[in-house]
Computed example of a mutant assay.
Amino acid sequence: MTAISSEHRRTASPNVRGIGDRLRWPLVAAVPVAFLGAVFAYPLVVMFARSFTDFVTPGESGLANYDWFLGTSSQMTILRRTVSSALLVTALCLFVGFPYAYLMTVVKTRWRMVMLGAVLMPFWTSLIVRTYSWMILLGDNGPVVNFLHDLGFTDVRLLGTTTAVVIGMTQVMLPFLVLPLYSQLVQIDRTLLRAAQIHGARPSTAFRTVYLPLAAPGITAGSTIVFILSLGFYFTPALLGSPQNSLLSQQIVEQVTRLLAFGRGGAMALVLLVITLILLAAGSLVTRRYRRALGAGSEVR
């Protein structure tokens, strides 16, 4: 009897351990999931609910906040300006950041460390200091405007315009593209490019059909980070821009803090969230098709 029960314990113990392992990991994950739910999901739900229940004018109900936002031409202009500014900042960061990240993969270790330090340097400087520095540089009597005046552009004004906002945001967002892009490019085996050229491909063709598809995940990751952060950026547009060319983040702060219109602010934020998700899904689809077309289905010529 003792031998049977001992054998039974030995046989059942792996099953018990397996059940314990399966139960332990959900319990471990419950704490961070609960934290994320409390910090991110709960405010989102409250904002979504208030967009349907909190109204400025008595007697309004339902979709009144969304009707106000989507039916007001000035608000639609601000929404288009916000999306276009975010896309422009992303394009400029990619235009500057891709060659920079690519150069980091081909230089020697010493220069690579110098270039990496230059990328990380903005994180060691206060955002307030950097933004006020741009206010001085782009001011009406600043060095940039004076230089343009010397070139013959006499009627130039930068501070308080969308151009100044894009310049300031690009400088802030550039490291967020370079770092994930570099982490992807440094993993690409450059012998693949030489192999393509040995088989008759021109350098440009090898770069387009071999290197870019392999770099697409880094490009997508960096561009996504920059685009999302640019959509909700507030501090730099508030200082470098003006009320005449404000972005949606400034309007949301205006509705919530000064007008106490929480429902309208929630409606604006949720519309922006939906647009962001749609654009991200479209970008992900385009990236997958691009990699499939150039990476898997194209012939090296």
Rank of each mutant, 00 (worst) to 15 (best):
G266R: 06
P237K: 06
S204E: 10
T236Y: 08
R292M: 08
L193Q: 06
T205P: 02
Y182G: 03
R208Y: 15
Q244P: 05
I225D: 13
L240E: 01
S223F: 05
Y290T: 10
L260D: 11
I278C: 13
R264H: 12
A206M: 04
S284H: 15
T276Q: 08
A238V: 00
L179P: 10
L277Q: 14
P203M: 04
G222V: 01
G265I: 02
F176D: 05
V172M: 14
A296M: 12
N245K: 06
L192G: 07
R258H: 08
T205V: 12
T191N: 15
A261N: 15
A269S: 15
Q250K: 05
V274A: 02
L177N: 04
R208Q: 13
D189C: 06
L193K: 00
L280A: 10
S223M: 05
T276M: 09
L192F: 11
T220D: 09
E254A: 14
L231H: 03
T287P: 02
R258C: 00
L273S: 14
L185R: 09
S223V: 02
Q187T: 13
H199L: 14
T191I: 07
A215L: 02
L260R: 14
L279P: 00
P213G: 11
F235I: 14
Y182Q: 03
I252R: 04
S246H: 10
P213K: 06
A269D: 05
F233S: 09
S246E: 09
Q250R: 08
L240G: 09
G265Q: 00
H199M: 14
L212D: 05
F233G: 02
F262L: 10
T224K: 06
V186F: 11
L285H: 14
A201H: 08
L229W: 10
L259I: 11
L239W: 00
Q244K: 13
G200I: 05
L185G: 04
Q184A: 11
R292C: 01
L273Y: 08
Y182C: 08
G200H: 02
A221T: 15
V186Y: 10
Y211W: 15
I188F: 09
A216R: 04
R264V: 09
G265A: 05
A195H: 12
Y182D: 04
I278A: 14
L185N: 03
G222P: 07
L273C: 12
Q187L: 13
A196P: 00
A296E: 15
A195G: 14
F235C: 04
L294W: 03
F233K: 04
M268N: 01
P213Y: 12
P243L: 06
L270Y: 15
T287W: 02
G241S: 05
A281P: 07
S242P: 02
A216S: 11
L285N: 13
V172W: 13
R289S: 12
V274L: 09
A293F: 13
I198W: 03
A195E: 09
A281H: 13
S204F: 14
S249C: 05
P237N: 11
T209Y: 15
N245L: 07
P180I: 00
I278E: 07
L270V: 12
L239Y: 06
I278R: 08
A238K: 01
A206I: 04
G297V: 01
M268A: 06
F235R: 02
V186W: 12
S242Y: 02
T209A: 13
A201K: 03
L280N: 09
